[in-house]
């Protein structure tokens, strides 16, 4: 658990972070979003003390981080940045092994862990273990960057716009993989981005920042349907609002469980906007749904997509 209590950071006369308080629960995926200069990266970098707080307290599992050695604190967390920062003179294996090496893991355990992580990030260990960073594409480099951050099984993963420099296809596949890793490991993630679609897609909760203040911290659905300020509404944008609204719910949320129909089924965790796309593509108004085990889980109707459940209209009402 990460706990910010009235944390302030000033650079000269400029207040980058202004008395911010929030809590990130164990295992939560928290996205920090806001315009540039809003203080979101500063907040992230205060969690591992790359930037020291001027006022207030930051606690992890109740322990004030100011009482810890910064290096020890950082070794307990994963850290991923937009420009990756792989060590160019080390192989992929040695890069990933950095923190386990610092923590003094036995050699065999490090080796196994590297293999495991490369497989987790869809990089063939035999092919990439001995490669140097400059031999990898941008997407592969960031996969290694994520693997390196996860190496010592940290309970907290800090990510500063990790996918912003990647092409849309690579970004989408890394987002999917990150979601899966988060579900599987239960790691607490704090993820900075300026891309609302990414925030809506990944976050359990989204904290919107502006001018060093926390404007709103809520679930993706609430951010979409109950924006706390015009800025939040602008960040969401009115364009394709309906599709974004659909994207934060899954097929399983709205399927009619008792019914059945033939056809290629959709997985229950598919976001609703994909289901709509699928209906248009197939020219049908009904799609069968299966659960995680492949068992039938009902039918999704086109009318279910437009049925308002809660806050189903555009806030402000004029879009």
């Amino acid at each position: 658990m990460i706990d910010f209590e009235r944390v302030t950071k000033r650079f000269g006369s400029w207040t980058a972070v202004d008395a911010v308080s929030f809590t990130v629960a164990e295992g939560e995926f928290r996205v920090l979003i806001g315009p540039s200069g809003s203080g979101k990266s500063t907040v992230l970098r205060m969690i591992n003390r790359l930037i020291p707080a001027d006022e207030g307290a930051i606690r992890i599992d109740g322990e004030d981080i100011a009482s810890l050695k910064p290096e020890e604190l950082r070794r307990r967390m994963g850290y991923v940045i937009q420009s990756v920062g792989l060590f160019p003179h080390w192989t992929v294996e040695r890069n990933i092994a950095t923190v386990p090496g610092l923590l003094g893991w036995p050699r065999a355990r490090i080796r196994d862990r590297v293999t495991e992580l490369l497989e987790l990030l869809n990089l063939d260990p035999r092919r990439y273990r001995g490669a140097y960073p400059h031999q990898l594409s941008g997407g592969q480099q960031q996969r290694v960057g994520v693997a390196r951050a996860l190496a010592a099984e940290p309970r907290i993963l800090l990510m500063d716009e990790p996918f912003s420099a990647l092409d849309p296809i690579t970004r989408a596949s890394l987002q999917t993989e990150l979601s899966a890793i988060h579900r599987r490991t239960g790691t607490t993630v704090v993820f900075v981005t300026h891309d609302m679609d990414e925030a809506l897609r990944l976050g359990d909760s989204i904290a919107v920042m502006d001018h060093g203040r926390l404007i709103q911290c809520a679930t993706p659905l609430d951010i979409l349907t109950r924006p706390a300020s015009p800025l939040v509404r602008d960040l969401v944008g009115r364009e394709e609002w309906g599709l974004k609204r659909l994207a934060v719910e899954t097929v399983g949320d709205r399927a009619r469980r008792q019914e059945s129909v033939t056809g290629e089924p959709l997985a229950a965790e598919t976001p609703l906007h994909r289901a709509l796309s699928e209906m248009v593509a197939r020219g049908t108004e009904r799609l069968p749904v299966v659960d995680g085990d492949g068992q039938p889980a009902g039918v999704l109707h086109l009318s279910d997509l437009v049925r308002p459940i809660s806050g189903g209209t555009v806030p402000g009402g004029t879009a």
Binding site: N48, G85, F87, P88, T98, L102, R148
Partner: peptide, 27 residues
Amino acid sequence: VPAPVREAARGMGLTPRQIFLRVDLPL
């Protein structure tokens, strides 16, 4: 020495001495 490389080294918990010896010096 690229700034992101130093930043990543610091963020992973290398001490200033380790950053100098393992990153700055060889590069």
